[in-house]
């Protein structure tokens, strides 16, 4: 589907795929969140992200087909999302750290893109709320009980390897990537310091790190996620309700 399209025409596709995949992961919390308020919060964040994905896909309709086709009929290797967002939810701390890492990237990314991309100008105000949500919970968990602290630190250590990929330039997007990474490091470092957490030191690039999602290479859990997400549409093509 994407093979014959020049990369620049698909510059926004990674943004849409990040949003769709993370939206689906957050939607998996429905019925499982620790408290009702969090059920609602995660669902609302997922809804914002789904709206972002739809806006990107609607723009790409001429090259990639309808929103449904883009979301439900592409194969794993055609998705351009970063590997961070496809990681399984894990426990609540794991999801929150994933949210902190991603929203601390997405919010300034949208700020950089806002002058040229209406969706980013729109979403930048919403993603500020996402980042705030992740920050507040990181502080609570990191600065909470021994158990919550340990789980949050474990999540940070486990997800760290997926954060280097966020700053690989996306062709066609005019973003100062190094500056973005500095902003991200400052944000995460500040939150971690206040939460009493240690910023991991493991590899984020090259060997032993992860991150080729932008090239369509994904981690094992992503295939299972897609199977569940796409199953209904593929089993009942064109079904509506």
């Amino acid at each position: 589907m994407t093979a014959t399209v020049p990369p620049r025409a698909l510059a926004t596709l990674p943004l849409g795929d990040d949003a769709l995949v993370l939206s689906h992961r957050l939607g998996e919390w429905a019925g499982h969140a620790p408290v009702l308020e969090e059920e609602v919060a995660l669902a609302n964040i997922a809804l914002d992200l789904l709206g972002q994905a739809r806006a990107v896909y609607a723009e790409l309709a001429e090259v990639l087909g309808s929103e449904d086709e883009i979301a439900f009929l592409r194969e794993e290797r055609e998705f351009r999302n970063c590997q961070l967002v496809e990681q399984p939810n894990g426990d609540f701390a794991h999801t929150i750290v994933r949210q902190l890492f991603f929203s601390s990237y997405q919010q300034p990314l949208h700020a950089h893109l806002a002058p040229s991309l209406p969706l980013a100008a729109k979403a930048v105000r919403e993603t500020a709320y996402h980042r705030d949500h992740a920050e507040q919970w990181t502080l609570r968990l990191g600065d909470g009980t021994e158990e919550s602290h340990a789980r949050t630190q474990r999540a940070a250590d486990a997800l760290w390897r997926y954060t280097g990929e966020l700053f690989q330039p996306i062709e066609g997007l005019d973003v100062p990537w190094e500056e973005l990474e500095e902003e991200w490091s400052a944000t995460v470092g500040d939150v971690f310091a206040r939460a009493g957490l240690t910023v991991p030191t493991g590899p984020r690039r090259d060997a032993w790190s992860a991150g080729a999602g932008r090239e369509g290479v994904h981690t094992e859990p992503f295939g299972r996620m897609l199977a569940e997400m796409q199953h209904l549409h593929r089993s009942h093509p064109g079904a509506t309700w």
């Binding site: 609607a58 929103e67 969706l119 509506t240 309700w241």
Partner: peptide, 13 residues
Amino acid sequence: SAGTPAGASTGTY
């Protein structure tokens, strides 16, 4: 099912 007909959105980047 998806609501938006392709191309209905005019928020071009």
